[in-house]
């Protein structure tokens, strides 16, 4: 499978803060990739670096085999739907669609008009008078209708209600299946978006925490529940990412594949085992990283 995006030890620093820290990742073509992380994890900065909006402090970035910064050959194949995009004063959604139609070679006007109907977007109203959800709808319409070879959606659904979010997932998947291309989505609604994704990349404090095929996630982490005493003993055999105690019951999220003898011990302790959901894994990983950072600070 061809690699569309490749970064090698990329960092973006703002004085003492590293928004992206020594990050090496790859995204393959014709797949939907999830880029997950907490607020301030570096997702938007990474996307801005990949689309040449920001300059990396160090490291190498390759998009379609070339450095994206100031590279018209690369950027003409890319569409970036940015969270909180600022639109020029006086613009209406129709103006945005007019510009996008002229810029993106693969633009599909029929799809754009269909999506305007789906999201009930008032195309002639000034953008500054639109709701947050309607603003998100503009980005979603441009992102899907542009049919760019590489599309970045940065938190594309902010302000959208549950119905509109479902419409987004459905329409993106429908269009993607008819016109395969590479899509990178950052999101907070992890379990909602999980069925769309083929790979998941989790970053925290600008660093790569995890990169997995979604279908292999069952091997990435599992959740065990049981009595507190049983969990106390079991926790000694496994790599615990997160633990929750409620009354006499406890649940732990365990990293990686659990060896057969340890699983047998779990059975003996009458622990209930479930594959960790993407949301559980994400929360466990980021919380674990936070505790480690805090512990380091206290040393």
């Amino acid at each position: 499978m061809t690699t569309v995006i490749q970064t090698r030890n990329v960092s973006k620093r703002y004085k003492a803060v590293a928004a992206v820290d020594d990050l090496s990742i790859e995204f393959e073509e014709h797949r939907i990739h999830g880029l997950l992380g907490r607020n301030g994890a570096g997702k938007t900065t990474l996307m801005q670096l990949l689309t040449g909006q920001l300059f990396a402090t160090s490291g190498q970035i390759s998009v379609f085999g070339e450095e994206p910064v100031e590279n018209a050959d690369v950027l003409r194949r890319v569409c970036f739907i940015q969270e909180g995009q600022v639109y020029p004063d006086g613009f209406t959604p129709e103006h945005v669609l007019t510009v996008a139609r002229g810029i993106h070679a693969g633009w599909d006007e029929e799809t754009a008009r269909y999506l305007v109907d789906v999201f009930e977007l008032p195309t002639d109203r000034k953008i500054k008078k639109l709701s947050r959800g309607q603003l998100s709808a503009i980005g979603i319409i441009v992102g899907i209708a542009s049919r760019a070879e590489l599309t970045f959606f940065d938190e594309p659904y902010l302000g959208l209600d549950a119905v509109a979010r479902k419409n987004f997932y459905d329409e993106l998947l429908r269009d993607f299946s008819e016109h395969p291309r590479t899509i990178v989505i950052s999101s907070h609604h992890i379990d909602e978006i999980a069925p769309l994704l083929e790979t998941v990349t989790v970053i925290d404090s600008g660093k790569l925490m995890m990169r997995h095929e979604v279908e292999d996630l069952a091997d990435a982490a599992s959740s065990f529940s049981g009595t507190r005493a049983a969990i106390d003993e079991f926790a000694e055999y496994v790599d615990v990412l997160e633990r929750t105690d409620v009354g006499g019951l406890s649940t732990i999220v365990v990293r990686g594949t659990v060896p057969r003898p340890v699983l047998e011990r779990a059975s003996e302790l009458k622990l209930e085992r479930q594959p960790a959901s993407l949301q559980d894994l994400f929360v466990a990983l980021t919380e674990s990283a936070r505790h480690e950072r805090r512990a380091r600070q206290n040393v």
């Binding site: 689309t51 909006q53 739907i81 995009q85 639109y87 020029p88 004063d89 810029i103 993106h104």
Partner: peptide, 20 residues
């Protein structure tokens, strides 16, 4: 002012280079 303050961010997001 608008050329750099409002339009640039929008244009770069649309894949336009700074030189262009």
């Amino acid at each position: 002012f608008a050329t750099m303050g409002q339009h640039l961010s929008f244009a770069l997001g649309m894949g336009i280079t700074r030189r262009e």
